[in-house]
C-alpha cells in the first residue's frame, strides 16, 4: 500500500509515518548536498541569515544531472545521506521536517529527528531516470556557483520514497 503525502509535512502526517512505509510525495522540496550543507551549517554556526528558509521544509540530498532539452528534469536520484550527518542536527533544530537520501544515518541525527519530530525518507539509489519523471519543475534558489550542488526547489508529483527512519527513531534498514 502506497501512502500519498503532500508537502509541507504537518506534524500529524509525520506522526503517522512509520519505518518501511512506501510513500508518494507531492509538493515542493529543497535540494542540497555536501557543499550547500557546509555553507548553511557555517551560517548557522555564526548566527547569520540563511539564503533559504528551511523551517517546515523537506530537503532532498541530490545533485541532479542536467536536463535534456524538452525534459523538466535530468536524472536525479539520492546521494548517500551519511555525508550530511555532521550538518543535519543543526538544520533539524532550525525547523527542517524531513530529509530524503539513501543509506544509514548517525545516532546523533536519529536523536535529533526524534527530538524535533522529523522523518527521513529513502529514494532508490540509482533509479535516477525513473525518479526524474516525478519532478515537474526545478528552480535555482541559492549557491548557483556550486553547479549541481546548488540549492534548488523541486516541484514533484508522486515522488516515490520509503520511510527509512521515522520520527520515533525506528529504522527500516538492515543493521
Amino acid at each position: 500500500m502506497k501512502k500519498k503525502i503532500t508537502l509541507p509535512l504537518t506534524d500529524e502526517v509525520i506522526k503517522d509515518l512509520h519505518a518501511g512505509d512506501t510513500v508518494l510525495i507531492t509538493g515542493t522540496m529543497l535540494t542540497g548536498r555536501d557543499a550547500a550543507h557546509k555553507r548553511l551549517y557555517e551560517l548557522l554556526q555564526k548566527g547569520e541569515e540563511l539564503p533559504v528558509e528551511i523551517q517546515g521544509e523537506v530537503i532532498y540530498y541530490v545533485g541532479p544531472a542536467p536536463a535534456k532539452p524538452g525534459h523538466a528534469a535530468g536524472p536525479a536520484g539520492p546521494t548517500s545521506s551519511y555525508r550530511m550527518d555532521k550538518y543535519a542536527p543543526s538544520l533539524l533544530d532550525r525547523g527542517l521536517k524531513g530529509m530524503i537520501g539513501k543509506g544509514a544515518r548517525s545516532s546523533e541525527v536519529v536523536d535529533s529527528m526524534v527530538k524535533n519530530g522529523a522523518v527521513y525518507f529513502g529514494a532508490v539509489g540509482g533509479a535516477a531516470a525513473l525518479i526524474s519523471k516525478s519532478i515537474k519543475k526545478i528552480e535555482t534558489l541559492a549557491y548557483e556557483d556550486l553547479g549541481t550542488e546548488a540549492i534548488y526547489r523541486f516541484t514533484v508529483e508522486d515522488f516515490p520514497a520509503i520511510v527509512v527512519i521515522d520520527s520515533y527513531g525506528k529504522s527500516a534498514l538492515v543493521q
Binding site: G74, G77, V124
Partner: peptide, 26 residues
Amino acid sequence: TAKSVLAQLIENHKIASEEEVPICQD
C-alpha cells in the same frame, strides 16, 4: 520491498536507454 526496488532499477534502465539519459545522476 526487495522486488519493488529491483523492479524500479529495471524500469530505470529501460527509461535511460529509451530516452538516452544517464542511468544515474552520479
